[in-house]
Write a protein that binds this DNA or RNA. Sequence first.
DNA 1: AAGACGAAAGTGGTTGA
DNA 2: TCAACAACTTTCGTCTT
Length: 321
Amino acid sequence: MNTGVSDPEMVKKCPKCGAGKVRKDSVRGEVLCMECGFIIADNLIDFSQEWREFDSDDVNGRRRAGAPISLARHDKGISTEIGMGFSDIFKLSPKLRPKFLRLKKWQQRISTAIERNLKYALAELKRYTSQLSLPPSVEETTALIYRRAVAKELVRGRSMESVVAASLYAACREHGSPRTLDEIAAIANIPKREIGRTYRFIARQLGIRILPTDPAEYIPRFASNLKLSGKTVTRSLNILEKAKEKELTSGRGPTGVAAAVLYIAAQLTGEKKTQREVAEVAGVTEVTIRNRYKELTKNLRFEGLDDDKKPIKALVVQAES
DNA sequence: AAGACGAAAGTGGTTGA
DNA sequence: TCAACAACTTTCGTCTT
């Protein structure tokens, strides 16, 4: 997203609504307005230094030079290649030249075996993360998961792409900014169920906990896509809290719950959206939204109003009175 | 005409024997 | 490995605004 913001750190006011309630979410890599829900900037880069110096030993041992080590580079950004300099070979005695060439050849053979694959995988990952506007922290986590999967030989029998996609799916969830399987499947060009299957497999093998996703994590993003205000987001989260207390969310698809809650909140704040629109961004059908909100309105009995014939109408009346 | 509603049948995934 | 099961989808006809 290009919002024309050169330095997200310096943004104090929302460029859209002018309100001063700007919050930086470094986990999701987004800067967003709490008033109108506008995402001012995303894809933030973490400029912070990972080490601090406490004494003179640290100054020598920890102060770093060069680029930080990155798991998202196939060689972690620190490989040495023999004979990169064009003229190096002429610095050697004629006697040593065959040895030099032999070493060079061997290095290439070793690296091609493992590194080639990794290089390709990480290039693919880069494409996914940039298309989904995910921050580098997620990319790093994905790279780590993928490396662990490779180390355990979990890629065998599976396509490399599906393992990268599954790693990405896992990393997004770890970072609390889950993407739906549909979203990842769309850019990776892999069937949704294959990613899901691979995800469950590697998660189990690598001991990654599989907890159901919290619908709340989808709400800000969906709301932003629907151009809903921060007020509606807040309202959605309130409704969701009540729904959780009454166990209305367990066992339900988190995207469906998020969609229904947003739909209801939008009705309440008068920012009317059709079921079709909400269903679209949430990646569920209108029927699912209907089923969820029927459960919600029936069981939550919004402020004592309980008209099961026309729950939504009842809600709007309640909101206006 | 568009949106909302809901019934019915079908799909893919989980679970427990 | 198989059947039962819940959640979700697809499809379609009806009602409401």
